Each structure stands twice: as structure tokens, then as C-alpha cells.
Amino acid sequence: MFGTPKRGVGAYATVGLETGVAAASPHKLVVMLYDGVIVSLLSAINNIKVTNIAAKGAALSKAITIIDNGLRASLDKNAGGEIAANLDSLYDYMSRRLLEANIKNDVAIIEEVRGLMADLRSAWVEIGDKSDMPPPSMQQTPSLMSA
């Protein structure tokens, strides 16, 4: 009559995610995409270990979709210049490696891509932390008169 608790929790999580996406800055959205890929890759690794091939394939497919339709599609190659072109090449490489990992059930390849993704995420978070700071001229400096 009221549905299962699992279904309710899933609906709540979906609303939470949608709210987070709607309220997120473009910078935060990219971090969320990186997080989505990393979670999918960890899921794929776990599913290889328990020989759940269907779930492994679904997790890798999700990671590739996020890379291709989220991260690559959001690149502005005109404004981003060489950096955007390099990221595009790296994302293409990662997608191809994950296709290979899917065929071979190769955890090492998935770990390689997860490491690259984690490095990109870390750099992106660091850039965001710096961009959230006010310019030096706007930061409060200690007053010499208060001493």
C-alpha cells in the first residue's frame, strides 16, 4: 500500500541528487561528474571480484556515458584552447580503456582510469577552492592601528 522502504529511500536519494544538481555551480557539477565516474568504476571493480558480469558491464557503461556525454560534451574547445583539447584526448583515452577493461574483465585498467579521474578531480577541486577566494585587494588585512 505504501511501497517498500527501499523504494522510498531511493526516491529520497533521487530528490536529494536533483536538488544538489539544481543548486550546484558549474564548477561543482564537474566535480559531481568526476564523483559519478569514480563511484561507477569502484562498482565495476567490486562486480568483477564477485563475478557479476552484468552489473560490471552496467557500471562501466555508466562511467563511459558520464565521460562522453558529461565531461567531454561540456568542454568548450574554443574558449578552452589547448587545455580543452588535451582533456578531450584524455577523456577519449579513458573511454577506450574502459571498453577494453569491459571486454577483458581487467581490474588494472579500471584502476588506471580511476587514478586518472581522481587526479583530475583533485585538481578541479583545488582550482575551485582558489576561485572561491576573494581577490587579494578584497581580502581583509590586519589593521596596523589595532596593535
Rank of each mutant, 00 (worst) to 15 (best):
M1Y: 10
F2A: 14
F2T: 13
G3Q: 14
R7Q: 13
G8I: 03
V9A: 15
Y12W: 12
A13G: 05
A13V: 04
A13M: 13
T14Q: 15
V15C: 13
G16K: 09
L17Y: 13
G20F: 04
A22C: 07
A22Q: 12
A22N: 08
P26E: 05
H27D: 14
H27F: 10
H27K: 14
L29A: 06
V31Q: 12
M32P: 03
M32S: 05
M32K: 07
D35S: 15
G36N: 03
G36F: 03
V37E: 00
I38Q: 04
V39P: 01
S40N: 06
L42P: 00
S43W: 02
I45Y: 02
I45A: 08
N46E: 12
V50Q: 11
T51C: 13
I53K: 12
I53R: 10
I53T: 15
I53S: 15
A54P: 03
A55G: 07
L60K: 00
K62N: 11
K62W: 05
I67Y: 01
N69W: 03
N69T: 14
G70R: 02
L71S: 00
A73I: 07
S74Y: 07
L75N: 01
D76I: 04
K77C: 12
K77N: 09
N78I: 11
N78V: 07
A79T: 04
D88A: 08
Y91F: 05
D92Q: 11
R96T: 09
R97N: 09
R97D: 02
L99V: 13
L99M: 12
E100Y: 08
E100Q: 14
N102G: 03
N102H: 08
K104V: 06
N105P: 05
N105S: 15
N105W: 09
V107G: 01
I110E: 00
I110H: 00
I110Q: 00
I110R: 00
E112N: 06
V113R: 00
R114N: 07
L116Q: 07
A123F: 04
W124G: 02
G128H: 03
G128W: 01
D129A: 10
K130V: 06
M133R: 12
S137L: 10
S137Y: 11
M138H: 14
Q139L: 10
Q140P: 05
Q140I: 10
T141I: 15
T141R: 14
T141P: 04
P142F: 15
S143N: 10
L144R: 11
L144T: 06
M145S: 15
M145Y: 13
S146F: 12
S146Y: 11
A147V: 10
